[in-house]
């Protein structure tokens, strides 16, 4: 019991004093997961819109692939990325293994299908009549896409939140490809694993609370954004 109380107390202390080691870990977590999320959004949202609108041969195969991707086991992604980036692997030349780039790559692979899949579902849920109506009003494809995206905004925001939630809290792949190197690839989740392994539960709890607070804040921001869009 004391362990948990001490941990909470210590967490508050670390936060109040803006402990530099802690800030470094938090900042790195946000930077790598932010980068992975940004890439996933830039690629995933247009792809999701496209998949949600188009009917083409083999679409079902693509959709099934995307849905499978939404449930990819992170450790398998980690293993695959590790093997590709390893010195003996096909991308070994890049020298990305055990760098933040490797983490961004693995996290993008995990977040992208979520962003694509949820965006696609949201877009596909909009009645076809709206598209026809827009077209009869003389809207260009670009205008139609933007309107649909706006109509599906709640779904798209959900896609982004889901993507972020999945990668900021991911540990297996990040540990494997990042290596949990101090000052370089140590993020919140891997730091929690390390502190637990050291038996330093207090610090682990502190880091856990911060991780929880981060996801909470991300959700809160998204919800506020959605409110603002709704009230426009």
């Amino acid at each position: 019991m004391d362990i948990i109380l001490d941990g909470v107390k210590q967490a508050i202390g670390l936060l109040i004093h803006l402990d530099p080691a802690l800030l470094e870990i938090v900042a790195l977590s946000l930077v790598v997961s932010g980068a992975a999320l940004l890439i996933s959004m830039l690629v995933g949202i247009p792809l999701g819109v496209w998949l949600g609108l188009r009917r083409f041969l083999g679409r079902r195969l693509v959709v099934t692939t995307v849905y499978t991707g939404m449930g990819l086991p992170p450790v398998v992604v980690g293993l695959a990325v590790y093997l590709f980036l390893s010195r003996q692997g096909p991308l070994g030349e890049l020298g990305w293994l055990f760098t933040p780039k490797a983490i961004v790559l693995a996290q993008t692979i995990l977040a992208l299908p979520l962003v694509v899949g949820i965006t696609m579902t949201a877009i596909a849920a909009i009645p076809r009549e709206l598209v026809l109506q827009l077209r009869s009003l003389g809207a260009t494809q670009g205008q139609i896409n933007r309107t649909l995206l706006y109509e599906a905004r709640a779904g798209v925001l959900a896609a982004i939140v889901a993507g972020f939630g999945a990668i900021i809290s991911e540990v297996g792949a990040v540990m494997m490809v990042g290596g949990n190197i101090e000052h370089k690839t140590r993020v919140l989740t891997t730091a929690i694993v390390l502190e637990t392994r050291k038996g330093d539960f207090a610090l682990a709890i502190a880091l856990g609370l911060i991780l929880l607070a981060l996801t909470f804040t991300a959700n809160w921001l998204m919800l506020s954004l959605q409110r603002r869009l709704d009230s426009r």
């Binding site: 849920a125 909009i126 009003l137 779904g155 939140v161 809160w220 426009r232």
Partner: peptide, 26 residues
Amino acid sequence: TLSENHSKRRPLFLHGDMFSRHIAFL
């Protein structure tokens, strides 16, 4: 613009629920 026009319609796809559940869970 077209989007303003349609924002007056009842939202066709709203996952507000999903968000509150997310938050409730947290």
